[in-house]
């Protein structure tokens, strides 16, 4: 499984990154977490609001910061 955080490094993007790390830790699963900060690449996901989160290439949420519990639900 692969989770990507889309965002150019705003404070909300970092918050989302922290939440994802926490969710992954709690789930105990093997998940690859990467930040996508290049705007050209972000746009290929079709999102207009950041931060956004994609799981295995599919955008789950854009323009808000989901809580760790919520993200944990998606990992399972």
């Amino acid at each position: 499984m692969k989770i990507e955080i889309l965002g150019m490094g705003c404070s909300n993007c970092n918050k989302l990154y922290q939440n994802v790390l926490e969710a992954v830790k709690r789930s105990g699963k093997e998940v690859e977490v990467t930040k996508v900060e290049d705007i050209q690449k972000i746009m290929t996901y079709g999102v207009l609001s950041t931060p956004a989160l994609a799981i295995d290439g599919v955008v789950k949420v854009a323009g808000k910061v989901p809580k760790a519990e919520e993200i944990e639900g998606w990992i399972k």
Binding site: G7, M8, C10, S11, N12, C13, I39, I42, M43, V47, L48, S49, T50, P51, G63
Partner: peptide, 17 residues
């Protein structure tokens, strides 16, 4: 439309594109 300055760039590009 919800707006936050951190989304200004992707929004701008999306509109122009």
């Amino acid at each position: 439309t919800p707006f936050c300055s951190c989304s200004a760039v992707p929004m701008f590009i999306g509109f122009v594109e």
